[in-house]
Design a binder for these strands. Structure first.
Lengths: 146, 146
DNA sequence: TATTGTTATACTCTATAACTATA
DNA sequence: TATAGTTATAGAGTATAACAATA
């Protein structure tokens, strides 16, 4: 009888847990956590100051959770809160030069870890994996429907 | 210039975050969390009472963290702590019948969510994904060397 | 003295609820 | 009244450090 036949979901979780672990371990010296990196990346993608509400949406967290992330990043000098000129209730967040430098270092770490993790695959296999994951990622949002 | 070309690691994280979210949402009604499920599964794989130290190792957490997980599972009646007859310092943990029933329900949920998530892929593509992930998973432990 | 697990404590991430300032 | 973000609080997960009981 088949004792263990891990399905794709099991393997996905196992591999990504490993990836998260390794990236997390190597992010520590940079003084940032993975969730914070996710926020930095989201800010970087916008190419302009981002409101808290939009940031929370991009990260798929509630606004309050974005506040915590930005608190930590601002304390570390990686982002800056500014007043939104159009709406005095709103807060616009942007990367500082230090935040950009950190992102560069983060990318280097991520690339290294990914290379190590995917070492068992050759070029074609990596391309195949990327295209399969792209197909999965492309469909639907993170949570069940509203 | 290429604006965004997510690499395999990015996609892996994105997809698995989605998977974790959805599984987590549907696990809530069963009264267990993902980390607890991981512990239940680890216990189930052993087919006998498991010491805390071994469990922690299997889960790749420090022993203290295993204590927290088992506290919650024991309070929910899903596992039981017993004295180890051979070593009175040690504690042996085993699944209760209720714990086994919960695992059955958990497997159903996981399968459903995985099916939904992987819906964009056909049979062959899923098989390809599984085999690629297997190759990645098969090599090396979760953390950097000791 | 070394090992097993636990108590004590702390930090990150995330969430809900209530509040403030503005619209 | 509705919206944007925050303060207050809580729970899960994990970690380190100190300690108890036992080996």
């Amino acid at each position: 009888m088949a004792i263990e036949e891990p399905d794709a979901a099991d393997l996905l979780l196992r591999v990504s847990r490993r990836l998260l672990r390794r990236v997390g371990d190597r992010l520590a010296p940079l003084g940032v956590t993975q969730a914070q990196v996710r926020a930095l990346r989201a800010l970087d993608r916008e190419h302009r100051p981002v409101r808290m509400g939009l940031l929370a949406e991009r990260l798929d967290v509630v606004p309050r959770s974005a506040t915590s992330l930005i608190d930590a990043l601002a304390a570390a000098g990686l982002v800056r809160r500014e007043a939104d000129p159009d709406d005095r209730r709103a807060v616009a967040v942007s990367l500082t030069p230090e935040g950009r430098r950190t992102l560069v270092a983060v990318r280097r770490v991520r690339r290294q870890v990914a290379d190590e993790l995917l070492a068992p695959l050759d070029r074609d296999q990596r391309a195949a994996l990327r295209s399969l994951l792209e197909a999965v990622a492309a469909s639907g949002p993170a949570r069940a429907g509203p």
